[in-house]
Write a protein that binds this DNA or RNA. Structure first.
Lengths: 225, 225
DNA sequence: GTCTATAAGCTGATAGAC
DNA sequence: GTCTATCAGCTTATAGAC
């Protein structure tokens, strides 16, 4: 059976793949500002003036580098999806399920902490019904999930992990990790913390790894009595 | 020890509690339309004209019944939070953990299916940093979670469930269930379904109940080999 | 490439007839 | 209570000087 690299599937996203703006360039600078704005307010709520303010540039400069609000939004979206699920990308039947899932969970959570705007922008797009990402969802994302689900099914058939719906397991890991970025204000209030710093990240990652691995039948019992 | 009803905590939300518009009234009709609009586009992205279109009313009629966009938004928000976590509200130390958690998960998921707009509106508010719900998060929501966490801790001390961070367990249940409403378009694509109908709801609920109960050490092993 | 000035159209909100 | 007409201000986008 031919092995298809999951990372190759991800690259199918960019049909009209433009070269990325050089880091440090003005375009890259604007994209960072735009990501924060679109993440917080969604496409319709975003304001080009606020993008300009965030980038500390006059508004027409934004329009010089990106023809329209729509094109700026699409440019931001494109850059986000690429580095989305890297840690679970090269996993195969031979991989250790506990190690692979742990690495996946920790990587997703680290991304949520390091770049919550990316996660929130994606969340906004999903909430609105993915008007700009429907094609991506129905092609490369679905292909990636089915490809990764196949590996999980092999683990199940080999008795390495519990029987669980693989697609829903991936969806649960996405939700449980991304939620700490998207609903960060709620998580911090609930945990009575001021910021999502490294200690909170570690405690959260430990909890999620333990809980999800146990859900897969992969962690020891540690009951009190 | 004095037992405080969790539902009483929820009622602390409405400091300035106005009577709810009668079902079938024009105000109630407008609120339904506004909920859908705010849910999809967030506060800044929402358009009063679209609210009017959704309600099939002239725009000034909206302003006649609600003074401003802000007030309409707050009116919608108020109505959502009340029925948020009812199924886990009356649970006590004496309750069976598996039954209580299962009822909680199934109720949250049913709400996500029946009223995804409510979940999405709340998600939008969280993504934006909860500008209108910071106070709620830091008072009644936190009190509710701590109160419910206390019960879970009692279950843990009694050896009824695994040792897990109770606050993070509640947060995970919220994320895993609400995600099916907020990211419905992604879930449907991933599961290759056309709509979030009853069969999908049941399968999803069964998966989540099994998986989360097992994470709490509350479900039998069902490995293949 | 950058920025001031401004056009063209949209948005929240209201005045005033019915 | 309802609806047409409309205002003042804001929003995307561009023209044109530098």
């Amino acid at each position: 059976m031919k092995i298809i690299s999951a990372s190759r599937i991800i690259h199918m996203v960019n049909k009209t793949h433009r070269e990325l703006p050089a880091p440090g360039s003005i375009k890259a600078h604007i994209l960072v500002a735009a990501k924060a704005e679109f993440a917080q307010y969604g496409f319709e709520g975003a304001r080009m003036q606020r993008v300009a303010d965030r980038a500390a540039l006059p508004k027409p400069n934004i329009h010089y580098h990106f023809k329209s609000k729509q094109q700026l939004y699409l440019a931001v979206l494109e850059r986000i999806i690429e580095s989305w699920n890297l840690a679970f990308d090269q996993v195969s039947e031979a991989s250790d399920p506990a190690e692979a899932l742990e690495a996946f969970i920790r990587q997703k959570l680290r991304q949520a902490q390091q770049d919550p705007a990316a996660s929130r922008l994606f969340a906004n797009e999903m909430i609105q019904g993915a008007p700009n990402l429907k094609h991506y969802l129905n092609t490369s994302m679905r292909a990636w999930v089915q490809d990764r689900a196949k590996v999980i099914k092999q683990w199940m058939q080999a008795g390495k992990i519990q029987n669980v719906d693989p697609e829903r397991l991936i969806f649960l890991i996405w939700s449980a990790t991304q939620h700490y970025a998207d609903f960060q204000v709620q998580a911090l209030s609930l945990l009575n913390r001021a910021e999502f710093d490294d200690p909170v990240l570690t405690e959260t990652a430990d909890f999620l790894v333990t809980f999800i691995l146990r859900g897969c039948g992969l962690a020891p019992d540690s009951r009190t009595t």
